[in-house]
Design a binder for these strands. Structure first.
Lengths: 191, 191
DNA sequence: TAGCAGTACTCATGAAGGTGAGTAGTCATG
DNA sequence: CATGACTACTCACCTTCATGAGTACTGCTA
């Protein structure tokens, strides 16, 4: 039961359909969770069966109807209970870091390329997150908003996403540069 | 097949037993992978069956014997193939960020407490990682080591871990402060 | 008017990961 | 000399996650 709470938390921001959640979870809900569409639909079905969310049909013209969901009182209680239990340690799984760890005995070229890819992705996400921050805080500056704003939760978690993406980008670029320089040097010495 | 490569990468640093890997993976192999002991033992068994690692018995006095493993040629090829395939996007799952996202409608007190816990954990990990960096680079300073050192892979991935932990600590403390101040303010206003 | 991209969702399956419980010997501590 | 902590490892089960494939309707574009 983990995706469960992420979905509930996402639905606090408004009513969403499974498809809309797909978009939100695709970029990783401010970077703290990822899920595939099928998982989301399955989870929504379960959540509704458990009475933690309610769905209602929205009739649309020019496109298929959709069912949007919102959190019920029971859902809020569930979230409250969840928030009160000790947090599991941050879970990270990173292919690329594994590759970097092993890079001394491997061909560094593809790893360098992947580092650049990742840096680009991080930059793109960072931009999305920074737009989101602007939208969330409206006309207020950050300090004022954090002091007086209404919904600081999403803002705060998005800040975490920003930090992560910024560091990811910096690390990828530095690491790629380091490996690139070593490759060039090794090339000169062997030739 | 994912833990698989993390285990292979970890075994590049030397021969380790399942139990030793437990310790390494417990703090998260420089923060890029976590696995429970049972998973590691199971994975080692499979890796050995597939000829990617070989084990040998080490007889010990005063404590149980152990089996240590090292990567074979086939294992290295497997890693090389893995390094050449495009990296999966970074996977993050963070309970605490979900809680922060939802904090506006919940009791912030337990969340604040968990943020402090997390900050402490991050500080502890950071210290471990910084010790590891010192050990890895020996007498050289970082720049020289990265230019001329032999095994920079583990160093580089550990740098990623450091960045992550530093940011985690900073974010947790800032977020806890923000939420704490808002709580105090709300308390004054209601009373 | 064929074809493709987008919205919206479902079904099925298997691999990967998580967890509790248990064994067995050694060592230090009170 | 009992208790708990540490090393070292195993078995078994169950949840979660990941993936491919498929349906259906709309609107745009070439």
């Amino acid at each position: 039961m983990a995706l469960r709470h992420a979905v509930l938390a996402a639905l606090l921001d408004g009513e969403y359909s499974g498809y809309q959640l797909t978009k939100i979870f695709d970029i990783g809900v401010s970077n703290f969770w990822y899920a595939a569409p099928q998982q989301l639909y399955a989870e929504l079905t379960k959540l509704e069966a458990d009475g933690l969310v309610t769905g209602r049909e929205v009739v649309q013209r020019g496109r298929p109807n959709k069912r949007v969901f919102k959190v019920t009182g029971a859902g809020l209680s569930e979230l409250a209970a969840f928030a009160a239990t000790p947090a599991k340690p941050l879970l990270i799984r990173d292919d690329l870091a594994v590759k970097v760890h092993a890079v001394d005995l491997l061909d560094p070229a593809p790893v360098i390329e992947q580092l650049h890819d990742r840096a680009r992705q991080a930059a793109a996400k960072l931009e999305v997150f920074e737009q989101l921050l602007l939208r969330l805080r409206g006309e207020l500056d950050e300090e004022t908003f954090l002091r007086q704003g209404e919904n600081v939760g999403p803002y705060l978690s998005c800040l975490a996403g920003c930090r992560l993406e910024r560091e990811t980008r910096a690390w990828c670029l530095e690491t790629a540069r380091t490996l690139g320089e070593r490759m060039a040097r090794a090339g000169r010495e062997t030739s």
